[in-house]
Structure formats: C-alpha cells, structure tokens
Design a protein around this nucleic acid. Structure first.
Length: 267
DNA sequence: AAGAATGTCAACCGCGTAAGA
DNA sequence: CTCTTACGCGGTTGACATTCT
C-alpha cells in the first residue's frame, strides 16, 4: 500500500520543464516569493505542476545564485572528505560548498568521484602506499603542523599537499585524486590498513611518497621517489609560505590515487 | 555510418519529520 | 496527545548526449 500522492498525477504535468514554465515560475517567485507554501504556488503561478516539482525546479535549477558543473579540485576534495565524515548527507555537504545544490553534489559524486576512486583503487595493486623507512627525515616544513587534530591518532604522515599546480616530470599532482585518510577508510581503501599498521612512531604511508613513486607505462618516474622529494612535488604555494593551518583539513594528508589508469607503481 | 554502450543530469518517488490544528 | 499536512532530503529513474565498436 503506497502513500497518498502529494498531488493529482492526472491533473499535473510531469517531465522536463519548458522555457515558458521556467519563466512563469521564476517570474512568480521573484515577484511574490514562495509564500512559504509550495503546494499552492503552482496554481497561483499559473502552472500545471506539482508543488514539489516547482520547489525542486527552483532550488536546483532556477535559483539565481547557483552554479552547475565544473567542480574544482578543491570542491572534489571537500566532497570526498565530508562524505567520509558524514556519509550521504548531500544537503549538508552542499552547504559547505558555495552555490552548489545537494542534487548537483550528489550527481557529481555518483557519476564522477565515486567511479574515479573505485577505478583508481581497482587499478592499483598492493602495495599501494609505501611505508617510509623509519629513518626517513620528515619532509614537513617547520611551519606545517605535524598532524591534523582529527587524525592525530593515525600514524599517517600528513603531507603538505594541496591541489597541485607544480609540474614535475611527466605528471602533476593534478593527475592524482587526493583522498583524506578518513575518506580512504570510508571507501574501504585496501591500503588504509597498510598505513594504519605502522604504529612504531615512524612516519608511515605517505601520500606524497606514493604519488611520487608512480610512473607511466613509459617508465618515466614521476618525481624521483622518497619522502625527500615531495617538497618539489605538489607543494602548494600556501604551504610553502607557511600559510596552512590545522583547519585546512582538505589540504593535509591523505592518499593519492592516479587518475590515469596507465600509471603503475614503481617498485 | 550506425548501433551499442556508457555517461550525465534533471526530475520523480517516497520516507522521515517538523509544525500546526 | 494525536492526527494531518507540507517540507526537505536521499535514492532512484529515465531521457538525452557522448563515446566506442
């Protein structure tokens, strides 16, 4: 037994909105607002649409202060990070992104980010994340916090990596998708355990060292491998300038997945 | 060039819940 | 307190576009 429909399905139009309907709805709302009652709005606006449909059309498409598509790397990082913390709370996640709708964020996750992560994880075969040698010197500049409060219990090395602009050899950091440690765990990252297993106080799996050890089939080594390398690789100008703070959650640490499936790990 | 496969995104569905009667 | 109504949200669908074979 289904629930009572919110409106008479026979009486209302469904499917894609015409430009005329868009104009009528936009015009009405700009003149009168929603009036706090979406159910009665369609009749007042002269639309043969369900109130729910009007609300959705306005919130997800017609509102003047929203953006569609073209998600930036920073937005991707925020989405992945918040998804790991909150799950599919799309409205909450969207609220953290300027002028984005929950529907857009949800679609972006389902069609791009989720698949990208899954593909990357599948392509990569263990060992995914290379533990740094215990004696590896800390690559962190003095101004960069050694650990983020939210993940301080993890032995993950938190890296001074931001969404990447510096080209090194064949690839840039833009060729990798950064996933914060918590997000990687939430995605059942097969390598998460590898990082967490290092409990001896030494720095462990390093996103930067991982990224810097990937190569293309051509054998070109990206970077040169090793923890000492990444100040030259993916270091954001903000971080090198010491501007990063512990609050810059999505700029610190995490796993780097190659977006190019042809990338393989350099042993 | 054509059909199939895949990707994208707008829109719908139905559930949970807050607010009001 | 209970019931009804409407809103907001997350999951899902389906049409259209694009890419692949």
């Amino acid at each position: 037994m289904g629930r009572t429909p919110c409106c008479d399905r026979e009486a209302v139009k469904r499917g894609p909105w015409s430009p005329e309907e868009d104009a009528a709805l936009r015009d009405y709302i700009q003149r009168h607002g929603t009036g706090g009652n979406w159910i009665s709005l369609p009749a007042k606006a002269g639309l043969r649409r369900c109130g729910k449909s009007c609300r959705l059309r306005w919130l997800n498409y017609l509102r003047p202060d929203i953006r569609h598509g073209g998600f930036t790397d920073e937005e991707d990082a925020v989405i992945v990070s918040l998804y790991a913390k909150l799950g599919s709370k799309w409205s909450t996640i969207a609220a953290q992104l300027e002028r984005r709708t929950d529907n857009d964020v949800k679609n972006h996750w389902n069609t791009k980010l989720k698949r990208r992560l899954a593909t990357a994880a599948a392509v990569v075969s263990a060992p995914r994340l290379l533990p740094l040698p215990a004696a590896a010197p800390s690559p962190l500049p003095p101004s960069v916090p050694a650990a983020h409060p939210s993940s301080s219990s993890s032995s993950l090395l938190l890296l001074p990596l931001a969404m990447p602009t510096v080209k090194t050899e064949t690839y840039t950091c833009g060729d990798f998708l950064r996933v914060p440690p918590t997000a990687a765990a939430a995605l059942h990252d097969p390598f998460a355990g590898c990082a967490d297993a290092a409990t001896d106080g030494s720095t462990s799996a390093s996103a930067a060292s991982s990224a810097s050890n990937w190569s293309a089939d051509t054998g070109v080594v990206v970077g040169g491998g090793g923890a000492g390398l990444f100040p030259d690789f993916c270091m954001s100008s903000d971080l090198t300038a010491g501007a990063a703070t512990a609050e810059d959650d999505h700029f610190l640490g995490g796993y780097y997945y190659p977006l190019d499936p042809s990338l393989s790990l350099v042993e």
